[in-house]
Write a protein that binds this DNA or RNA. Structure first.
Lengths: 202, 202
DNA sequence: GTCTATAGGGGGATAGAC
DNA sequence: GTCTATCCCCCTATAGAC
């Protein structure tokens, strides 16, 4: 069955907002892309800003909760969680490569979004994964990487290539397919790299 | 002596474009921020787009050439270049934290910019630094990290925290000063982390 | 629910005086 | 070089017919 008109508008808006940002996207473009009339957008969503906020929140939830669930699974080990994270995120970003840049841009102009509407702090820094991290490094004889640096490294190794993809593709003349193949390689490597960093003495 | 009118306009435009993007910045805002009249902007720069392009290219040059020079210094070792890079870039990004997001956003809508106007490929992938990398890993008994992954990791560890700063500050409730202090710590750690990753067997 | 038509304002750019 | 005033397009949002 055909998607509802409301859903067609949201799909078009998702695509356009993600590629061109809030100011760069015109309501006329959304209507045309959705194959409907301009007035219908306001009928369903009242205003462009409201439509953007709805889409933004949905994206942030998929972005944040995608990790949160796996990170709080008490049945998996620390290493398993790292493998899970790398796999899940690289798959997510391969399908939606513009997601990180979109979210970070929106967060810069409205940092309160992530604190108010999503319990990011609770979901990540106090997660079962971070508890396991603390236990893992406590067993070592030397002071470990502070948790925040560890999280920055793990996320950076995973997300940054997607954010800087135009830069890397220009550097190496690779196609998007080849880029995606490289990201598949990273699924295997990131757990090893993270593990090696944990052995570094400060 | 006072900055020239032309320079005042560029300074205002740099600030606003960096914070709010091309579409989000209004010519009237630039004029007000520069303390001059709207018409003067067109007198000096002909159009908003032209002004943006000029500023964009200057930023990309500082961003890319900042590395290129150090990476092609034949008098420094591989390890020294990594230390130099981490220091120089973290200092640059501490002063201009919005620079990476600004450049990546502009590159997404116009990827040709970086290939046409700047010889990125030559400057980085064929640099003296990458030659030293190849030599360093050739001495090992096992297949090394492919050069492209190595570059992604090095840049990701350095640049990503600045891109995702709103996210990390929300996660940990740290102030901007505390965030900057953390980035100073990374200057020391990044060379160690990179070194540890090079020892990983695939 | 879906359309056409249009109100109403903001935006980039320019004309022309000084 | 610098200003004021203004053109004219395009954008968001709404009125009102069907």
């Amino acid at each position: 069955m055909d998607p509802s008109t409301e859903e067609k508008i949201k799909e078009a808006a998702r695509r356009l907002f993600m590629q061109q940002g809030f100011e760069g996207t015109k309501t006329r473009d959304i209507a045309k892309e959705a194959g409907i009339n301009l007035a219908l957008m306001n009928y369903y969503f009242r205003s462009k800003q409201n439509l953007f906020d709805i889409i933004m929140l949905e994206h942030m939830e998929s972005f944040v909760k995608g990790i949160a669930v796996g990170f709080n699974d008490t049945s998996t080990s620390f290493d398993e969680k790292i493998r899970f994270y790398a796999n899940a995120y690289i798959d997510l970003l391969t399908l939606q490569p513009d997601l990180p840049l979109f979210i970070m841009t929106a967060l810069r102009s409205n940092p309160a979004l992530i604190t108010e509407r999503l319990g990011v702090k609770k979901m990540l820094m106090t997660s079962h994964f971070m508890q396991q991290y603390t236990e893992a490094v406590a067993a070592k004889r030397f002071a470990p990487i502070p948790p925040m640096h560890f999280v920055m490294n793990l996320f950076g190794l995973t997300v940054f290539p997607f954010i800087a993809r135009p830069f890397f593709q220009a550097m190496s003349n690779i196609t998007t397919d080849q880029f995606n193949a490289m990201m598949q390689e990273r699924k295997q490597q990131i757990p090893h790299w993270v593990h090696a960093m944990l052995e570094v003495r400060p």
